[in-house]
Design a protein around this nucleic acid. Structure first.
Lengths: 333, 333
DNA sequence: GTGAAAGCGCTAACAT
DNA sequence: ATGTTAGCGCTTTCAC
């Protein structure tokens, strides 16, 4: 019932007939150790099933072999692929990942970072919503920070983002070429930098192409897309630019229920290129936001700092547009 | 560039003009402390932005305020909701969650547990695939363990499962009542207890109801469902019982592409009742596997052990069948 | 009620 | 190349 007592470095040392320093050296690989001593230690460690106490190790070394991954919503499918990538990459380099859910609140996010900072080697922030000042503070206090989905001038950290401007432009061009003149954008949460960036990019692009663009804000998920579809249609748009594929799918389902055909009557586009986009019918025209790559880059940027190599530069990840069945010529064009 | 030095309990003690013991007592709330001293300490801590060093705390207390969550695939949507629930609940009680991906490998899973055990207060295992002996070993060595999606007699840990037998029976009865006599089950990975349990339950139930049942194994995800649909049809079945909604959706998409109508020609059922099930067209008849509840129960079971209250009993979580448009009368019935 | 001091398990000087 | 030892920051006896 009581927590079983741990086997310590002393147990190993006793069994192997050496000092604890030698054990530490063998296990840590820090210095040269006699071949046969090394073997004795390794054997002894295996025999007693020794596992190092991370707390003790951290206390003396100041390193934790642990990083924090902070995100607005652990339940959001978008972040899951990034989480997967980060966990996988971190593991390769011997790091654990602590998951922190900021429930989309800027202050909570900031506070969580402050709390974690003294107890992790580094922090990866996914779509952070805290203020720039808070961001700067966290970076100042943390050993290493990587940021995903936010570009903030004057901040010294790797900022891994997709090429939102390029993606938006491609979508607009595609729709314009199909004869669409009136568009509506179902945007994401405006607390997020990414949502705001896309709105701006779409507005600019639409203006340049001489297109009308309405913007509607929706909650997250398929249901939100379903719920806002009617309102989107009322704008008179012939094409809906959804914030992500889940939104797009929800919109399409609503259109289906109303007997409105996609793409004959209305075209729909998404973002992210999730599996669902390929297997929905019609399949969804969408622009990929390579999430595994976002996670990998975030880890690479963090690891560089952990190794003392400074903050590596990062370039926007390109976002390929994949045209599928959900977009077609504008009705009456 | 170098990691900023931490403020320690000494800094707070100095500033407040008290001993470190008093600071510890105030912050830990362990003993009675003079009202005004307490205030001085709290103020001082706030002023210097003091954050306790978790490693030091753990080293002396033997407690980590951290738990490990081990799962076969961090990228699998099914586990995400459980993860969310666990993170949320754990946070309420002041615990961090370390995410470990066992990449579906039993030995890797076991090894990861052994490694984490000395460095966390408890472990939650999602759909563990390790042997019963390994499971018992982990439980013996860990302070606290909760298991989700596996029932293993003679194991002393909360085992949180859904009522697979009941769920399977409900599906079979539903299909039988619609006149289906030949069924096919697209099962999940047979390394998983849940997949094996459902196969057994479906076989038993089919026999009892006098139904034919073929079983096909598929990979995970929508694409796998899409890929196996043709083979499923070749069995001559009029209804497909998919392992989960993603499979079901993939199957339905393939049927759509072949011009086979659901449910007029073939019925399809899923498991999990994810959002997609409601918004797919036709919507998917499925049985809910309340994932948030699984996560919550796992946490409750773990917390009880962390508090020294022993291993609480757990009862299977019931799984409501929701009939939607993807099932209908058997063709020619 | 408060302070002094021991020591958690380990790494990294420092000796030898 | 190996052993001895001083702490890392904190909690918790133990004195007062």
């Amino acid at each position: 019932m009581s927590p079983p007592k741990r086997t310590t470095i002393h147990d190993v040392a006793n069994r192997a007939g050496v000092s604890i320093a030698t054990v530490s050296r063998v296990l840590g690989g820090s210095q040269k150790v006699n071949e046969e001593m090394s073997r004795r230690v390794l054997d002894a460690a295996a025999e007693v099933g020794y596992r190092p106490n991370a707390a003790a190790r951290s206390l003396v070394s100041g390193r934790f072999r642990t990083i924090g991954l902070v995100m607005p919503d652990v339940g959001n499918a978008y972040f899951q692929d990034i989480l997967k990538a980060v966990v996988t990459e971190a593991k390769k380099d011997g790091y654990r990942v602590v998951v922190i859910d900021s429930i989309g609140d800027a202050d909570e996010e900031y506070e969580a970072c402050l709390q974690q900072v003294p107890n992790v080697d580094g922090i990866i922030l996914l779509s952070p919503r805290m203020s720039k000042a808070q961001l700067a503070d966290v970076i100042a206090k943390a050993g290493a920070v990587s940021i995903v989905n936010r570009l903030e001038p004057g901040i010294s950290a790797p900022m891994i983002v997709t090429d939102n401007a390029g993606a938006c432009w491609e979508i607009l061009e595609h729709l314009a070429s199909l004869g669409h003149r009136r568009l509506v954008h179902v945007c994401g949460p405006t607390e997020s930098w990414q949502a705001r960036t896309r709105i701006t990019a779409l507005r600019r692009g639409a203006q340049r192409l001489g297109l009308e663009l309405a913007v509607l804000e929706a909650e997250q998920g398929v249901e939100a897309g379903y719920a806002i579809a009617d309102e989107a249609l009322e704008t008179g748009a012939t094409a809906v630019i959804a914030f992500n594929d889940l939104h797009a799918f929800g919109v399409m389902t609503r259109l289906h229920d109303r007997g409105i055909r996609v793409p004959e009557d209305v075209s729909v586009t998404g973002f992210d290129d999730i599996e669902l986009a390929r297997f929905s019918r019609p399949a969804i025209t969408t622009v990929g936001t390579p999430k595994l790559e976002l996670g990998e880059q975030a880890w690479i940027g963090l690891l560089a700092q952990l190794r003392g190599d400074g903050v590596p530069p990062s370039t926007p990840i390109s976002t390929p547009l994949t045209v599928r069945g959900s977009t077609g010529p504008a009705a009456g064009a």
